[in-house]
Design a protein around this nucleic acid. Structure first.
Lengths: 209, 209
DNA sequence: TTCACAATACCCTAATCAGGGGATTAGACC
DNA sequence: GGTCTAATCCCCTGATTAGGGTATTGTGAA
């Protein structure tokens, strides 16, 4: 059974050349090619594609918005982003929106088919730059700045961020509630916050817990 | 100038075969091969490699721990994980620890050199399965399960997670403090939590804010 | 037209937290 | 031995939060 494909690309020349390319592959069946994604809900509903090739920059709705919409309505639809943008903003947003792969346009002619194949096999095709950015974004969020917290204070903070009350933290750490209070005061000073929620928020967002 | 390489691999047979493989490549200079990573600080200090090929499962310190240590001491050292593990736990931990690439052992013979090349060019070589897992982990954190929160409740929750007291939330949203209280109560019900910290923690971890 | 529900607001009580004290003990460092 | 710090504990007061109500208004669906 051939793969049903939709294409979104606002540049007519490029659109036509991708259309020709896709037609070369007998395993792919192109159901439609659109210059904008403003009616993406209807397009997808009408054709029920297995795969969408999606440009980012288009008049009206962007490919990232369209990706988000399609993924919400039909989560199993595969979406491969085809774009010239290799900046982290666009790449990460596209992936968060639900794109399954991200191919830079300069690689279309040489790698489109292998990328599609990889997608259908459950992989996530990416250009090397893209892979690097994705990995970096994961590593950033796990870099720890300690704020000089002691081990015990980290224990308390961890317990706090699980939603425990002072009383429960005391039980959790096997210390008295007053000691918890003392640790919490020190945590507030070191993190420069003034209440539980702010401490928890900071702790989670900066990877302390 | 050739790339200076260290290898960590506890299986002697595999270690030797990787050693032989690396020696085939005149652009790579193998400075050492170790069966465990317990002295990784000293090894790295002594040889100052550009690249480390790292197994995960080793006696004593794991490759993930070792990666963390090396990256803390020498952030510019590239680390390529070579392992049989293709589960999300190990992959994501290795990447968070600072690994620059992740190659499954079954691909070593065919892709080691291209992976190294990609690494040196600033890329992030990954097997297709690995790439998929990485992407999925990013999508999970941005998949919005709303818990049926209304817009206003989300406003309040957002303000709360910035560390604002009920009083400040009221000012922030331009409503009375009692209304804030009502919204908070509804938020607690919907998220199934019983206090601010738990709500904030859940909100951040599930990507609600 | 009901019915449901979002958004707003108010009241009450018990529990909890914030911020300010002070204090002891055990280790580490010089 | 003196100093410092982590970790432990205690007390007090005022502010805040949790959990339980009730109530009005507007909107949109049944």
């Amino acid at each position: 059974m051939s793969t049903k494909v939709l294409l979104y690309e606002d540049n007519d020349l490029l659109k036509e050349s991708i259309v020709s390319l896709v037609k070369l592959n007998e395993d792919m069946e192109l159901l439609g090619a659109f210059g904008h994604a403003n009616d993406v809900e209807e397009d997808v509903k009408a054709h029920m594609p297995d795969l969408i090739l999606m440009d980012i920059e288009m008049p009206g709705r962007s490919g990232i918005e369209a990706t988000k919409i399609v993924k919400q309505l039909y989560p199993s639809t595969l979406i491969l982003i085809l774009t010239v943008f290799d900046d982290s903003e666009n790449i990460l947003n596209a992936i968060k929106a639900g794109a399954s792969g991200y191919l830079l346009k300069k690689f279309i002619s040489t790698r489109l088919f292998s990328a599609v194949e990889e997608l259908l096999e459950g992989g996530a095709p990416m250009s090397p730059t893209v892979a690097k950015l994705v990995i970096q974004s994961m590593q950033r969020t796990s870099q720890v700045v300690n704020y000089g917290l002691t081990e015990r204070e980290k224990d308390v903070l961890l317990s706090l961020s699980k939603g425990n009350s002072f009383k429960l933290i005391a039980a959790d750490c096997k210390i008295s509630i007053d000691t918890v209070r003392t640790h919490i005061k020190h945590i507030y000073e070191k993190l420069q916050v003034h209440c539980q929620t702010e401490a928890v928020s900071k702790a989670i967002n900066e990877g302390l817990v």
